[in-house]
Design a protein around this nucleic acid. Sequence first.
DNA 1: GGATCGATTGACTGGTCAGTCAACCAGCCT
DNA 2: AGGCTGGTTGACTGACCAGTCAATCGATCC
Lengths: 202, 202
Amino acid sequence: MASTPKAPPVDKRRQILDAAIRVFARQGFHATRVADIADEAGVAYGLVYHYFKSKDEVLNELFSERWSLLLAAIDEADRSEAAPRAKLEAVAGFIVDSYRHDPELMKVIIVEVTRAANSFGRTHLPEIRRAYDSIARIVADGQRQGAFRSDVDADFASMSFYGAIEQLLSGWIFELIPAGDGDFEQAKSLVVAAICDGLEPR
Amino acid sequence: MASTPKAPPVDKRRQILDAAIRVFARQGFHATRVADIADEAGVAYGLVYHYFKSKDEVLNELFSERWSLLLAAIDEADRSEAAPRAKLEAVAGFIVDSYRHDPELMKVIIVEVTRAANSFGRTHLPEIRRAYDSIARIVADGQRQGAFRSDVDADFASMSFYGAIEQLLSGWIFELIPAGDGDFEQAKSLVVAAICDGLEPR
DNA sequence: GGATCGATTGACTGGTCAGTCAACCAGCCT
DNA sequence: AGGCTGGTTGACTGACCAGTCAATCGATCC
């Protein structure tokens, strides 16, 4: 062959990360030994430490990879010309689709980072917080435009909105509420409806 | 003395539980050694195992003690004659007051149990679920009375409502939003307002 | 005063893993 | 061939800590 296969045909690093998603999702971070990751990846124990400084770094990498996409999606929604309500729909849509596309990864991120406030959540608080802040900016903008009532604090609304979505994902993850294909679509509009329209009839 | 001090003057078991709250809140469950609990309680290591079968059981006890109060409060609200919206206000009020009354205990319960879905959360899922179900019953009742719109699934509304409150507590716990004395009162009505009235102006 | 029994003590053990490291291997260049 | 480089291997170690247990204490009763 003329090509120089400098990089090996299979990306072992990626292989380890993907294996880690599966194992973390199945057993939880604390209950998985590094050997479990290596086994699942079909790779020797030591190789994990060739590519990652520690077991923690594997999880950090998984989180950062995905969370940066979320931050980008929120910012993109914010910068768009859409109506405030449509912006929130875009954010909810992105998160729900993330779960639909890769439930195991989202499970790991939520259970092991976002909600693990005493371990990884603390480490990544600044990044997590950036998401809350960006959502709050969308809300505040909507209030300035008169699309949202102004007697609700934007930070508060942001927390409620995000909390509601995350609780929904948790419900799916732990099979507390049905997670059919239609449920996802329905959920997207329902979270926004709940926060924007409220429950009371007009 | 005529009295028979069958029980020792200080309840060591309670002392251990209270110490555990402080240490769990400060360091998190996984990071606290049993020796830390004993030290904080001013008690010998082995005494913890005299009163509790394991380190896990200490946390279980703390959770069950408090969660049963929450379940009772929700059920009491449900059984009352109040308007559906007032019932939700009562639930939100109880949870917020629980945090105000003992932030450390609520931090432990939320961080280590309710949101620790891969460890204790899984163990206590049935009890946690009972809270969601009771709230859903309040919502469904409100829908039957016409006080709430019916095109939002009650289970879904329940999850959103609870998720919003829990996210608020998380915000206080990790100092993402201000936790002054007035903020608590404001929050109670705001969670309900957000979920009942929504954000859009009338 | 000594027998009994529950509370209390803290040194010790056994098992578990994260992380290390020396050796091995495969491709590639000279 | 021989040597270099970087990916790959897995046995080993050192630290940590939950849980055990035999010993001590102290109150109460006979």
